[in-house]
Design a protein around this nucleic acid. Structure first.
Lengths: 241, 241
DNA sequence: GCAAATATAATAGTATTGCTATCATAACAA
DNA sequence: TTGTTATGATAGCAATACTATTATATTTGC
């Protein structure tokens, strides 16, 4: 795979091609039956994204989803044991998708600072264009990540679910950016915290921009990318002009 | 009140005295009947904190709470129209309580940097000692803030609830710290985003410390306070030695 | 092409949730 | 003492979050 990546130009078309071959892998304990293996499964994923966006995760039910896709509640339960597991699936898929972008788009960058800046761009930018290579609408999924993803870990069951490996992809993403930080400033003692702050903090700034504009500078002129790029460059002591 | 504060030493004893006179004010549209005005009301607040901590917000119900306090479900509905409103009450109370501490403990500090550092300490530190001046156990409430407070705004109803003023205290806290940042560096263009990142980011680091220690540097030796103090001093270009 | 396996659909049922409504009683105040 | 207010007890209801069973398609292997 590394060999292939070296020859690829990182753009959406390439993503599309690459991902038509490579499958986004979600920890398989999250589902009962892999939704990627059937038409119904794909319809479940595709439309759960639309429905959660429409009504919010609290009001989302398998019954309503069944109605939307002309299928039965009980059939959906054959894929996911609960709506919480479905949310875990969607968030895992998103982080895996981001990780692919991170790897592809930073792979050929040799300059450590440039590499980190690119990484910050990737994890903080708004997903606006749907790459359209699959049944998953990434633009809408991104809205769900901003509004609902915290609920995937803010539960009484986190500890156990963490042990089951449900958050591995997310954690690997954090450590990837940690490594980029350390390659610039090996003695910086808070690389993990800075990395996790960039990722969660960016989602939070996107949320504020939408719902609490009075407590963020992010808006039309300033993006979370600009804010976090500045924050990181100042913190690690390099200029980004 | 300002006159009084000038003569006070900021410590827990003073807090206790001050708050026995001053009432923490929560936006009054949040409740149907003010729980501070009756014994039952106070029992509801006191024990909702314990129960939410025990079972998590999702499994928390008014029926269970009624059972715990030897009262009736229907009586609790006379105070709060839903458990969501109760969560809003608890989070608002917490932010108001923090704001008091912020005002009291930074009031007499004239040096801008010292003032900001004190403010960061106040909003990022773990609430470990219960001041015990009321029926509210702040230590347990703090755990709820870390684990559940995001759910108070990550809902389909945020926009409306924001219009109703339910988040005023929280927003005012963010702008207070924004002002402290600007008094050090008036040209820094991201003061609001930095402030909101400190507050939410600190809760997130506390959460990670507890549940995902592999993606944070915070733990026994490093606290969120140390991380954010360093982050802010580097970002604003002053040293904190 | 047919049987067997598998996937999906339809229906029913259950305990719990998130309430609302009504009526009774207790406490307290005018 | 009478009225007002607070609380308690009970009932009821539609929706949620499932589980279980049975029926009917669809696919697959031989």
């Amino acid at each position: 795979m590394i060999a292939i990546l070296l020859y690829l130009q990182p753009n959406i078309l390439v993503m599309k091609n690459l991902l038509s071959v490579l499958k986004i892998n979600v920890p398989d304990k999250i589902f009962i039956k892999d939704p990627e293996t059937s038409e119904l499964g794909k319809k479940i994923i595709e439309n759960s994204i639309y429905l959660i966006d429409e009504v919010g995760f609290e009001s989302f039910t398998f019954k309503k989803l069944g109605l939307k896709i002309g299928s039965n509640e009980s059939s959906i339960y054959r894929y996911f044991e609960s709506k919480h597991k479905l949310l875990l699936y969607l968030t895992s898929w998103y982080w895996a998708w981001l990780e692919y972008q991170l790897v592809i788009e930073t792979f050929s960058i040799s300059d450590a600072k440039e590499k980190l800046e690119k990484a910050i761009l990737i994890v903080t930018r708004t997903v606006e264009e749907d790459t359209n290579f699959s049944h998953i609408n990434e633009t809408i999924l991104y809205k769900i990540i901003v509004n609902e993803s915290s609920k995937s870990f803010l539960t009484k069951g986190v500890k156990e679910e963490n042990k089951s490996g449900y958050f591995e992809i997310y954690k690997r993403l954090v450590t990837r950016i940690e490594q980029m930080i350390l390659s610039i400033e090996p003695s910086y003692p808070f690389a993990l915290s800075l990395s996790s702050t960039i990722i969660e903090g960016s989602l939070h700034q996107h949320f504020l921009q939408e719902h609490f504009p009075s407590i963020t500078n992010c808006g039309k002129k300033i993006s979370p990318t600009i804010f976090f790029t500045n924050l990181v460059s100042k913190t690690l002591g390099f200029t980004n002009e």
